[in-house]
Amino acid sequence: MKTTSQKILGVWNTKTVVAIAIGAALFGVLMNYGGIPVFTNTKLTTAMIIPVIVGAMFGALPAAVACAVGNLIADLIGGWGYWFDWSIGNGVLGFIVGLLPLYGANIDEGIFKPVHAIIYAVACVIGNALAFGVITPILTTLFYGGELEITFLQAMAAGLSNTLVLVIIGIPILILLARRNARGTDLKLEEKEVKEEQNI
């Protein structure tokens, strides 16, 4: 079993590194090609699903890293300029959305109940409010000075569209993934017997 700190920080083994990398690549590509523009630099993007999945499988910090690196990659191949404030904001959002294992949802073992879906939806709203309502505007003023009005408008648009995507597409995907993984849960590693054999 994972400890609480492992659920938040993730276990940084090779598997996690690779999963974050693939998550970041998917995030970057979906951010560019898998979205519909809503407002300046803001899209109704399906990329937001990635941190949910990475978070559900590997923990909150990996989700945050996947989100932040993914946003950097999206900026790099998209060419709308660099917005590190948004990368960090996305990282924070990834962290909060990726907290899934902390409140008991375990996609790897197929556990995703309606209670988790509700907590998840609330976390999405809080995460968006915190990431784009507080952190991104603060960083924007720090990095670029001014432009608060537009950032707030963008943040509103981003927060709303992200919440929509996270809830409307996120929950079905989580249920789907959980159901998919649940098929394997009847197979249990018979630790006791192995140990007994070793004792003999």
Partner: peptide
């Protein structure tokens, strides 16, 4: 979304292969 689901699942299923290959080469 319909394309997204298989894309995500097939991508994350590859994680095991890649990480095993890296582990075997002594990564980390």
């Amino acid at each position: 979304v319909l394309i997204l689901v298989p894309l995500i699942i097939s991508s994350f299923e590859r994680v095991g292969n890649i990480s095993n290959a890296m582990d075997l080469r002594g990564y980390g």
